[in-house]
Structures are given as C-alpha cells and as structure tokens.
Design a protein around this nucleic acid. Sequence first.
DNA 1: CTAACACTTAGGCTTTGCGCTAAGTGTTTG
DNA 2: CAAACACTTAGCGCAAAGCCTAAGTGTTAG
Lengths: 114, 114
Amino acid sequence: MTYYSRKLNDVFQALADPTRRAVLQRLSEGAASTLELARPFEMALPSFTRHLKMLEKFGLVKSKKSGRVRTYELAPKRLQAVEDWILERRKLWERRLDQLDAYLLTMKEDDHGQ
Amino acid sequence: MTYYSRKLNDVFQALADPTRRAVLQRLSEGAASTLELARPFEMALPSFTRHLKMLEKFGLVKSKKSGRVRTYELAPKRLQAVEDWILERRKLWERRLDQLDAYLLTMKEDDHGQ
DNA sequence: CTAACACTTAGGCTTTGCGCTAAGTGTTTG
DNA sequence: CAAACACTTAGCGCAAAGCCTAAGTGTTAG
C-alpha cells in the first residue's frame, strides 16, 4: 500500500464529478456516441467532451471513432482499484471497531459498581 | 439514484488526495492527535490541518479537543455511500458484460463458416 | 507568571478544474 | 461539390484546491 498512487488519485478525481458519474451510469446500459451521451446535459459540447476525455485518460471508458462518430463504452477494469481500496480500508476499519468493542467490554468488566 | 449527489461528490473529492487517504489509513489503526498525524508529512502544519478539516467536514473522521490537543478518529459511516455506489455500478457493469457475451455467442451461432 | 506547546487564523500565491464561445477538421448526404 | 453533421481545437475567465509564511489563541509545565 503506497502513500501515493497516481491511479487512485485519478480515479477518485474522475468519480468526484456528477456529470462523469452520470456518464458511467449511462454507459453501464450500453455503448453510445458522444452526442447521445451529451444530450441529457445542458453543457456546451466542448465542455462535455472534456469529461469524456478525462474518463478515457483515466481508463474508465474507451472509445473508437468510425467515420465522424465516436462511440464510447465502459472499461470496467480500473474501477477495481477503487473497490479494492475501499474494501481493504473497510476491513481495517471494522477490525478497529471490533477492538474498540472488546476494549469497552474489558472496561465494563473491570469496572465494578462505578 | 440521483444525477447530483453532494455527498458522493464530497467523499470522492476527499479520497482523491493521497495525504487524506494516508490519514484515513493511519486512523484505521487507531485514534491520533493532529501532530501525531502530521508527523509523517513534510507539509506545513496549517496546510495539513486543512486536510483534516476537510475529512471532518465530509464526515469521514471526527475530532474532539481536550485541553490543547485535538484527537481524531474514523467515522466510517460515510464510506458506505461510496461503497454502495461502486458495488451498484459494478452490478450493472457485469450484467452488461454478460449481455455482450451472450450477444457474441449469438453472432457466433448465426455465423456459419464466415 | 512566563515560556513552551498544540494548534488556529489570516492572507497570499500558483495550479487545476470546469464552464464558455469561436473557429477548424474530417465525413457524409443531397 | 456544397451544405450539414459530428465532433475537435484554441483560448479565455472564474472559482476552488493546495501549498506557503506570519501572527494569533488558549492550555499546561516549570
């Protein structure tokens, strides 16, 4: 577990924006073109495509251009890093809380009547 | 599942910084004071305490000041939101990949000899 | 009661994030 | 081949992130 993980920084950063999360959600229902993806958003197109570029740069989606249409789909591998991190953290977390429980129990047993 | 979730934005944002992730890791081993937490980092103290404030503001840690020492500990509840989001996304993801598998199989069956 | 300690507040500086408009590129379609 | 289409590039503006130093504030030890 390194202090600095570029990959984790990037993926969390990518997920910190609601537009990008919504795009991932949409793509989980199937591939789509740039304009299809952009339609629900009120944003100007260049602003929107920056989000798509960011998602691709950080490995969360991939795209392919055919003719004048660019089609995007998910690249789920990268989300695994985040999931791993969370689950690992949660294990430590819960172990710690268990220890706290145990400690409080000890206190209680040692603590006769006051 | 709403398009805009302040809570998710905030938590992902909080986790996007390596210093803050390291603090969470350290705290998963037990509570600690501001200076104890700060020691491993080369950052100036005011810079570091801003990270702590952010973690607290977003509900990932909590603190209590007693005398001149402020002690921090984890507040694990909030991480659940992130975990939920990830796992939900993953379910959709995998269903989608399964569909793709099925589709490719269909193709293969329809595709006799070319 | 003074000095050290453990932060905390204030303010400044630079970089990055996220939005915009305007103009450009390459691909179809009539 | 001209016009419509689907992006793409360039460049600007503003706000927030993340770092710093300097100067507080309140607490405790000698």
